[in-house]
Design a protein around this nucleic acid. Structure first.
Lengths: 238, 238
DNA sequence: AGAGAAATCAAACGATCGTTTAAATCATAC
DNA sequence: GTATGATTTAAACGATCGTTTGATTTCTCT
């Protein structure tokens, strides 16, 4: 009973995953059809259900296949940084590079399929569908907890709530920057179809932007809408 | 032939638009069904097609109804700022507030429906569907051109290409921050269902973050892959 | 009131969807 | 070889989709 998978089986599964990745990216979850995925993969329609059970399960498999190795790598890089720091807080730039830089580098080294996946998760993060949300939450829970803690230590003078918000903003800028390279053509008037160069040049630009945003001065308004306050002390919460 | 719309007609159209706004936001374009929209609106299934022609046209109508007034307001505010500046370049913070602040303020003043719309466009901007892209491009062309020009003048030392990229990042952080307030619960462990306060407190935080990212130091790597440069002067281009 | 346009309604159309079924094919062990 | 299990295949199922139709109701105007 030790999972005797033949070579042919793995090929079919892999082909389905690859095709599904592309179709889900191009059409979204609802817009994609099992028939188109099977067609692109060159397999029978029923193969998808045979190997994965359902469309939802296939989508989760597509996400997890790459998300898992990405997040494992993120944890490994963070471990390495913290070991090298020997107890001292990390620099914000190090943390951002470990989280977002790892993402971008993985997409580059994995070729066009990596970019496809990047754009897929960019789309996916804005889909509030229930099963997608739970799938992502399980896959991201550990990583986000670790990186949040690292940022808290790196920026002790910034309220934790503020850091969480800015982490959220950075996620948005990143996923959007990747998912919406087409959208950028909506802003600019480029018609250059560059793809590889786009991504390689995106990384340093994005990292600068994220770092600037993360270290921006705190908002002037104390973010708590209580204008009747006679006390305006800004107690620094430990 | 002067468009004699009766009161009842406007009510039905409005109800359909409101319901469609909510369903499209919750389910996405493909996930939403005309039957559910009609049901939520309390009208017959055929009413949607009678008043709008097709599902695509209904979606465009939902987008344009609010996008148009938003972008008109954005242009008006920018006009006002530039008139007051009397030829001098605007401050980046003024431009960002005119663009993103107007968006957030409109969402707040329009109540829960405004937030629904905000989250809808947050989702929509990541859908690369063809007709959606063209619809958005038409609606955004003028505004983006004006604001790009204003930013170019405000930041003459920053390469225009860099500004366009950062504009893109800011759009992403904003749309994602709004569309994904649920996603934020994926990061944090809040279970508070706050909505109004969330948005009101979001604005100053987001503006600080955007401004910090916009004014971040330029990426160390000159973004052009020519490492053989023997000159490392950072000429300030006029 | 009555003609005519505008709007609503119930019902159906064809298409496509995810999923299932049962037979056919392949691989592997005895 | 045959038997057994894994995989692939063709075909169909029921459900839901966007859209259309034609009758019916509501409104507008003389």
């Amino acid at each position: 009973m030790t999972e005797t998978v033949t070579a042919d089986t793995r090929d079919t599964r892999q082909r389905i995953l690859d095709a599904a990745e592309g179709v889900f990216m191009a059409c979204g979850y609802d817009g994609a059809s099992m028939r188109q995925i099977a067609g692109d993969a060159g397999v029978n329609l029923a193969a998808g259900h045979y190997h994965f059970g359902s469309k939802e399960a296939l989508f989760q498999a597509v996400l997890n296949r790459r998300l898992h190795v990405l997040n494992q790598e993120r944890l490994r890089v963070l471990d390495e940084l913290e070991a090298k720091a020997a107890g001292a807080p990390l620099k914000p730039s190090q943390i951002l590079d470990a989280f977002f830089g790892t993402l971008l580098r993985m997409a580059i080294t994995h070729g066009p399929r990596g970019q496809t996946f990047l754009r897929l998760i960019g789309r996916t993060l804005t889909e509030p569908s229930e099963f997608i949300r739970t799938a992502l939450s399980k896959e991201f829970a550990d990583v986000l907890e670790r990186y949040k803690a690292a940022l808290f230590r790196a920026l002790p003078e910034v309220p934790k709530e503020e850091i969480v918000w800015r982490f959220h903003f950075m996620l948005g800028a990143t996923s959007y920057a990747i998912a919406g390279i087409d959208t950028l053509r909506l802003i600019t008037d480029w018609q250059t179809g560059a793809t590889d160069d786009d991504l390689e040049r995106l990384a340093p630009r994005l990292m600068s932007f994220l770092l600037g945003g993360l270290r921006a001065p705190l908002p002037a308004a104390p973010a708590a809408p209580q204008p009747r306050g006679n006390v305006r002390n800004r107690r620094k919460k430990p």
